[in-house]
Amino acid sequence: MHPTSARLLNILVPIKRTIDYAVKIRVNPQNTGVDTNVKHSMNPFDEIAVEEAIRQRERNKDAIKSIKVVSIGPPKASEVIRSALAMGADSGIHVEYPDSAPSPEPLAIAKTLKAIIEREAKEKNAPIDLVILGKQAIDDDAGQTGQMLAGLLGWGQATYASKVELDASGKSANVTTEIDGGSQQLKGQLPMVITTDLRLNEPRYASLPNIMKAKKKPVEKLSPSDLGIDLTPLLETIRISEPAKRQAGAKVETVEELVAKLKEAGFKAA
């Protein structure tokens, strides 16, 4: 059917369900974590990654075969998978762990993603050519997963991307990335890992027809053990606390009063 004989590209977009960026974060009374009983949504950088994958397909219509999203998270992570499918991704994988389990660390996530990529190639005959993911998740701000994944796979990586030009037939990508004080242009052969920065694009709204279609798109559910992965964290969180509160100020009526207050507080004229 397709004019090119070259194998079409498969894109994988890992996404994370995080506390929404507009929510005011509150530390729980036990000081063991933050209050998670609040509005969650897709990590904004991951949303940019989903948008980028869809735009690449819109630009290279016949070159991209599939866009698959994967989320590793508790049962409710399925919501962000639905969101991504409503935006235009084709299918999803949900690696589910129980609500009670601690949040996994970037290394475990990278290993899980590697396992999924290997599985896609071996069992599904759909080798992944490009992984696009957020440069960091806004909850723990680690900013490590993309780099670790590229390292584990031995693939090239372009991090903090602000522009991606895909050469589908040449199987390469030109990526403009953000660096201190400017940008740099990188060129790499696929397969590779790209992490997204804020300026890359502005994610679309999910249209109603696409939301309805998304309900019928396949989402595969796996457990970490299905992939031979242990998500247990290597670090233990001992205590989380809020920054010390600033003391409220007071208004003074006159300069004299101000001077008196300053003297009271122990300030002296130089």
Binding site: D20, S41, Y205, S207
Partner: peptide, 17 residues
Amino acid sequence: LINTGVLAQSPAQFSSL
């Protein structure tokens, strides 16, 4: 009754709409 529409997927989109 409608042509189409969009549904907010996040508080950010909620505010944007």
